[in-house]
Amino acid sequence: MTGRLVTVVDPGPLTTVQDRGRPGWAHLGVPRSGALDQPAASLGNRLVGNEETDAVLEAMVGGLALEVSTAMTAAVTGAHAVVEVDGRRQAFGEPVSVRGGQTLRIAGLHWGLRCYVALAGGVDVPVVLGSRATDTLSGIGPAPLAAGDQLPIGPPRGRPRGSDVDVSAPPPSPVTLRVGRGPRDDWFSGAALETLSRATYTVSADSNRIGLRLDGPALERARVEELPSEGIVLGAVQVPAAGTPLVFLNDHPTTGGYPVLGVVDPHDLPACAQLSPGDRVRLRA
């Protein structure tokens, strides 16, 4: 293959291709997928002159290294990372020019968990059910990146732009997620709802693109029977048998059989993408 390519020198802990995902197929059991931190992915696309719907790379921080075949503009957004090209420090959250044969690397981290690497022209892997996104639950879309993979990059679309939002501020600790109650808040005791509003939870190491799993006080059920499986929305706060809540993120299953106590405000979901194991979270219902 000739033309615009990036070669994966090191995929880091987990790097996937992401865009706006594939909503509209949930009735067939297909997760929505898509970038967890949509504002960061969109910013990256704007910085390199892409459409906001173009595919970018979502990289859990530390280690991703990409060699570009030909000169192209890149931008790293999301988790506040140390960006290097051939070992030289570059700006974070701004367009970066990379020459053919040079290697762009996520070399370190100030805060956050997931970076977005936008490349002018967008990652041009095949579209499956309307999206190029990797779905880690069902396996639809390209596999997570592996060393040696070559990714086609589309032709550049527009002129790179300067940074248009302030990306310098780390999130507060604990992060507060606003939760609208329902549909199954009546399956929990009054004490559970009080616990939820007072407790500070800790992000579990089991968290992934499917859900943000939280450690902390268990939430007592008022109804203990089995709930027939029902459809799940993005941001649903589900309470499995163990009693500690999880927040469903973009690769969530389309249906589930544990009660959903509430739904996280969509404006607070990008923050979920940047929470690391051990970070503190409050849920305000």
């Binding site: 909503p23 509209g24 197929w25 949930a26 009735h27 027939p228 499986s229 029902e230 459809g231 389309t254 249906t255």
Partner: peptide
């Protein structure tokens, strides 16, 4: 955007 049937919903 999505209409998702299930067991009782």
């Amino acid at each position: 955007v999505d209409i998702v049937p299930a067991a009782r919903t």
